[in-house]
């Protein structure tokens, strides 16, 4: 019985969302706000029980691992963001977090730049590597603005535009597929679980 009620509520909320396609209306607004509220309401206790209790409260207060007081205090400083007088304190944990991001820079450079560059330096012995070579060089030239895009150089950079257009087209085609997949998912739910037509 609970499952049936759940399916009917989900179907009602799905139709509320679809009603926006006709025009903005109170049903859509209601479903939209409910969605945001539910997501937050779900995430807060889950994070409390799966993050705060096992990784902060239990080690600090039950296992007496007092070294954790330092990250605990740094974390608590975030809350001072809501204080007019002491909001500047919250910049310290932000700075600390940014430092952690910095830790990932060398690894990120390796994965996203160096390895990618290495794959551009393959012998030009097949059509794929030749295309990749031409595409990479012509696009890099297109984004080199210290030289006017005229004459032979201009023609070469326009090849880069074509390569980019092909890339944008592929991305757009995939985007259409993604959006339609989401629609298919919702309609599948309505037809299968709600109306039992599939």
């Amino acid at each position: 019985m609970t499952e049936i009620i759940g399916i009917w509520i989900a179907a009602f909320l799905t139709l509320c969302m679809f009603s926006f396609l006709y025009k903005d209306n109170p049903f859509y607004k209601f479903a939209e706000h409910l969605f945001v509220g539910c997501s937050m309401g779900y995430a807060i206790p889950l994070t409390w029980y799966n993050a705060f209790i096992p990784y902060a409260y239990n080690p600090l207060f039950l296992k007496k691992e007092y070294i954790l007081i330092i990250p605990f205090i740094i974390g608590m400083m975030y809350w001072l963001r809501f204080s007019g007088k002491f909001s500047w304190v919250s910049r310290y944990p932000i700075a600390f977090s940014m430092g952690i991001v910095g830790m990932g820079v060398p690894m990120s450079m390796h994965a996203n730049v160096l390895v990618q560059m290495r794959s551009m330096m393959l012998p030009l012995n097949n059509i794929n590597t030749i295309l990749i070579f031409i595409g990479t060089v012509s696009i890099l030239c297109y984004f080199f603005f210290s030289k006017a895009h005229t004459g032979a150089y201009g023609k070469f950079t326009s090849i880069g535009i074509w390569f980019m257009m092909v890339g944008f087209g592929a991305s757009f085609g995939y985007t259409v597929m993604a959006r339609i997949s989401l629609l298919i998912g919702r309609i599948e739910f309505l037809l299968e679980e709600w109306l039992h037509l599939l």
Partner: peptide, 17 residues
């Protein structure tokens, strides 16, 4: 991955990452 991101995976497939 979702189709929106599918095109982004090809450079990493090519490198074997």
């Amino acid at each position: 991955v979702t189709a929106v991101m599918a095109a982004d995976t090809y450079p990493f497939l090519q490198t074997g990452q």
